[in-house]
Design a protein around this nucleic acid. Structure first.
Lengths: 282, 282
DNA sequence: GCGAGCCGTTAGCGACGCTAACACCAAGCT
DNA sequence: AGCTTGGTGTTAGCGTCGCTAACGGCTCGC
């Protein structure tokens, strides 16, 4: 009677969500639409949150599979731009999915899809760093661009369609790129302030070396399943560098490489960290 | 028996929300805590969404009343900075309130508190524009900074407390200010970009960084004391650069810098593979 | 005095997330 | 073959939720 109940449930939930919004996504309605009973749903997904995470991940991956083929450009910065635009485009074309993924925040915990998307973002940024174009550490750039892009997407889908400023996303995107990249962009409106300080080459060089020490940039199609995403800013402390993954720096030991990379990131951060709260990097 | 039922309900709902999170905010629990019956609650607030908007507005205004006295500085840009920080600080000190205000997005409609907060933001930006410091329209700047600050606050709330990067907010804030403000920093002598190639091998990168470090005198052990404090972190650093002596590697001590440079030279002449640095990691 | 409107209370409706308990059925073991 | 075993489907129901109809007592203008 039911060849693949899980898939039927996911399809039913996805169409129910796309058509009637997240408020209509009840377990009863999904079970009725998938023509199964409630206990089967709970046996497969555990509880409603498990269903939600599964259906959001399902929709997200289906969208990525459609669009990911266009990703690889030669320029990693351009890839980063396209990643931003893809993110916002997904939010606008599937607002209910996006609201469920990013727009339902519970203070303690982060669901699965944003973490997965952060992995893709980190992979993109590692390629950018490998090209010597990043002037902040990859983790910092990932946090900044991730937070800003989510904020833009939520702001866009929160207001009615005709009130949305279509240029908002690109403006914030370029502002963030200006903040994390080294080079001034070649061809945009010439009003760019061209404010690369004399310190940026040092930071860029440190980060480029750090990226090289981390190993080759991840391949285009392979999402870094194994690469640890060091969310904590000051961390790593050897976990990444020392444990597995010894990079090609044969001249240094693993412990030395770990300490070296730590220093490189401190170099890239600059002499002092902004803001009154100077407890950023101890 | 009930001098002011509305106020009692609001207080009960606020404490219930602050203590037990948004999931415990049921109309039944609020009614029981306020010692009233369900129909009274619905007569006053209409439905649960009305209660939520009222209680979030209540908490937000109470917070604003506490902090708003410190607002007026002479500099409107500094006021804008404080407004940003106030926003993020509110999100971090009252995460459940904030999650209810900004973190529960329904694709069509925007609740009351964000609209009210946007009004304050627009007022601040109008003063900035009046001072001639804005280079984009006020509405544009409001959308950009509003979206980015909400994204930052939600990103900070979403992850556990010890994983939060305390500098993230300031970094994104300054990036947005750089994007919407006219440049107050005097243009410096623009040393050439001195970019290194896209795929420089590891040795070249090590040497490039070593050369950059050679220009900087080894920093003394107290970096922040001597360096002039600049409010704008990323961009400027004009004080340090204008001091002549190059981008001080203030993040590292003299001994660390020495050992770092030693390692860099070992990296440069070490047995790195001739095939290029494409060593797969995972 | 007296109808009119306001307010609190009781009781309950329909829907929700979730689960115990049982029926069935194919597969493996003695 | 007989029996156990484990997975699957089904029924029925528990406790809670948001929300509301209906009633009774209250004050108040007339």
């Amino acid at each position: 009677m039911s060849p693949d109940a899980r898939q039927r449930i996911l399809d039913a939930a996805a169409s129910l969500l796309a058509e009637s919004g997240s408020e209509a996504l009840s377990t009863r309605a999904v079970a009725a639409a998938a023509n199964i009973q409630a206990p089967t749903l709970y046996r497969i997904f555990g509880d409603k949150q498990g269903l939600i995470e599964a259906v959001t991940a399902y929709g997200f991956e289906r969208y990525l599979a459609d669009k990911q083929a266009q990703a690889p450009t030669g320029d990693p910065v351009e890839d980063l731009r396209r990643g931003w635009d893809l993110h916002v485009e997904f939010a606008l074309t599937h607002p209910d999915f996006y609201a469920l993924m990013y727009g339902s925040v519970r203070p303690g915990h982060q669901p699965a899809v944003p973490r997965e998307a952060t992995g893709l973002l980190v992979a993109m940024l590692e390629r950018v760093a490998h090209a010597g174009r990043l002037r902040v550490p990859v983790a910092t750039a990932a946090q900044m661009t991730g937070a800003a892009s989510v904020g833009v997407a939520l702001a866009l889908i929160a207001r009615p369609e005709q009130e949305r400023d279509p240029a908002l996303s690109a403006r914030v995107r370029e502002a963030m790129l200006d903040a994390i990249l080294t080079d001034p962009h070649p061809a945009r409106d010439g009003a760019g302030p061209a404010r690369d300080g004399a310190d940026t080459p040092l930071a860029a060089r440190a980060l480029a070396l750090d990226a090289a020490l981390a190993g080759a940039p991840p391949a285009d199609d392979a999402p870094p399943a194994g690469t640890p995403v060091d969310t904590s800013p000051d961390t790593s402390s050897g976990g990444a560098a020392a444990a597995g993954a010894a990079p090609a720096a044969g001249a240094l030991t693993a412990a030395e490489t770990a300490l070296l990379r730590q220093w490189l990131r401190r170099l890239a951060e600059g002499p002092h960290d902004s803001t009154g709260n100077s407890r950023a990097v101890r």
